[in-house]
Structures are given as structure tokens and as C-alpha cells.
């Protein structure tokens, strides 16, 4: 008799399961059809870094202090600076990011001493897959100039 009830309850549990899945069957899908639809990228998304656009135009805000280079756990940032011709301090001449080893932790941005706007920021780029290796080696100074040219 106990077995009988067990079998009956078991059967009932099976039919409950079936009723749940069939209800899900008729609900709309929840996936994003990626290449055609995209998700909105949140404001704080941690993409690869880039040099922040100077709001006043002109050269980058970066003072080539190498704080980010020191803060980077993976040592994937190389910064070189040259003396400014029109005043004290340095300006960035080379800013390379080896994206292949970058872990997107954001410690470089936190280390940046430039105020009020930090000299480096996250991009929202995520379509970075490539069949070659050279995508990983990013020349951020060049990128800065390209973006500036595009803006103006």
C-alpha cells in the first residue's frame, strides 16, 4: 500500500514537472540574438583602457607619471613621456597596452593622479575577437589621435 501511494505521488510530481515546462514552452524567448541584437553596455563597463579625450581639445591629459604602469598587476602597460615644450611637466609620447595579458581590473585607472578628469578611462568596446595576434598590441596614443580627428 505504501508503495502504491509512493508511485502515485511520484507520478504526480512528474506531471507537475511537465506542466511547468509546457508553460515555459509558450513563453517568449529570453535570449539576445547577438549579432543582430545587442545588449546595452552599462556605464561602468570595464572594457580595455584608452586615453581620455581632453575636453579642451589638444594633447592628452596624461602626464606620463607611470603610476598606471607601476600599478598594473600584469605589467601590460608601457608609458613613455617627453618634456613639454611649452611649460613644465611631461606629455605622453608612447602609451602601449598589451591587451593579451590585460585582466581588465581597472587598477591603472584608480592609480591615475590626474584631476579632476582621469587621463585614462574604460572603453565600451567588446567586439575584440580576432584571428590574428596584432589586435592585442594597442597603441593608445594613436587611438587618441584617431578619435580626436574623428570628433573634429
Amino acid at each position: 500500500m505504501k508503495t502504491f501511494w509512493e508511485v502515485l505521488l511520484g507520478l504526480k510530481s512528474l506531471f507537475t514537472g511537465l506542466s511547468i515546462t509546457i508553460r515555459e514552452f509558450f513563453k517568449p524567448t529570453i535570449t539576445t540574438h547577438y549579432p543582430r541584437q545587442t545588449e546595452t553596455i552599462p556605464a561602468r563597463f570595464r572594457g580595455h583602457i584608452q586615453l581620455t579625450q581632453n575636453p579642451d581639445g589638444g594633447a592628452s591629459l596624461c602626464i606620463a607619471c607611470k603610476s598606471c604602469e607601476r600599478a598594473c598587476p600584469s605589467a601590460c602597460i608601457i608609458v613613455e613621456g617627453v618634456k613639454k615644450t611649452d611649460g613644465p611637466g611631461k606629455t605622453v609620447s608612447e602609451f602601449r597596452l598589451d591587451f593579451g595579458t590585460c585582466s581588465l581590473c581597472g587598477l591603472c585607472i584608480e592609480a591615475c593622479p590626474v584631476k579632476p578628469v582621469k587621463a585614462i578611462e574604460f572603453t565600451k568596446r567588446y567586439n575584440l575577437a580576432s584571428t590574428t595576434n596584432d589586435y592585442a598590441d594597442m597603441d593608445l596614443v594613436q587611438r587618441y589621435k584617431d578619435l580626436q580627428a574623428k570628433k573634429s
Partner: peptide, 13 residues
């Protein structure tokens, strides 16, 4: 396709 619908995704598309 059925598996997709049960799992609320489109399946082969």
C-alpha cells in the same frame, strides 16, 4: 527546436 522553446531560447535559427 523543442528543447530551445522549453529552455526559452530560439533553437537552431
Amino acid at each position: 527546436k523543442g528543447a530551445g522553446r522549453f529552455q526559452r531560447r530560439p533553437g537552431p535559427d
